[in-house]
């Protein structure tokens, strides 16, 4: 079963082969978890909840999967949508604390007086502060959708064409977002190492 493509495994699952779906889970468990972890500002518990939601959604929506369409963009689309929905519901829950969706999802550098040290609320639930290094902290501040584009391409290795499907953008726009994100990231790193 290790030689089978994602698409073949998903079709087997549609036909009732649970082992095929377990294999897909094994393949995507770590990449999706790490993508979600970074999308959700290293909130480990949230990333685990959303990861579970994603695989439950995949299992329930198996009939909607078109065997000829690539599996990976489909699964990342579901992961991204569930991740962003989670952030939105957190923003609603945080409304009493005056933490908006924008504050949860946009870079702190756009907000004078709320530098990284001010993001303790966001980072408080991470497994260990040591796990969020300098590079991850800067990536976390990238605006959406540049952050997702950067994570999907540079960290998870998806080609621009697949990311275009995930974000419903054209590949040229994805490239623009990626170069902007990488430029911003390297400029900040350059400033920090002055």
């Amino acid at each position: 079963m290790t030689d089978l493509t994602d698409e073949e495994l998903m079709v087997m699952f549609q036909q009732g082969n649970t082992a095929a779906f377990e294999r897909l889970f094994e393949r995507y468990r770590l990449p999706l978890f790490n993508f979600l972890l970074r999308l959700l500002h290293f909130q480990r518990e949230s990333a685990e909840d959303v990861l579970q939601e994603v695989f439950i959604k995949l299992a329930k929506a198996r009939e909607l999967y078109e065997p000829r369409s690539p599996f990976r963009p489909w699964v990342y689309t579901i992961a991204r949508n569930h991740g962003l929905n989670h952030l939105r519901s957190r923003a609603v829950a945080s409304a009493q604390k005056n933490i908006s969706f924008d504050e949860l999802t946009e870079p702190t550098s756009d907000r004078p007086g709320r530098e990284l040290a001010g993001k303790d609320d966001t980072f408080k639930a991470i497994a260990s502060k040591d796990e969020v290094g300098r590079l991850d902290q800067i990536i976390d501040r990238l605006p959406s959708p540049a952050k997702e584009v950067f994570l999907l391409h540079a960290v998870e290795g998806l080609p621009h064409e697949e990311i275009a499907k995930v974000l419903d953008l054209n590949p040229a726009t994805v490239r623009t977002h990626f170069h902007r994100a990488r430029a911003q990231l390297c400029r900040v790193l350059a400033q920090q190492t002055t």
């Binding site: 699952f13 549609q14 009732g16 779906f21 377990e22 468990r29 685990e48 695989f55 439950i56 198996r62």
Partner: peptide
Amino acid sequence: STLAINVAIHQLAPKP
């Protein structure tokens, strides 16, 4: 978390 997902997969699996 991994175990919970595996359990869910089996519960939701289509019956052959």
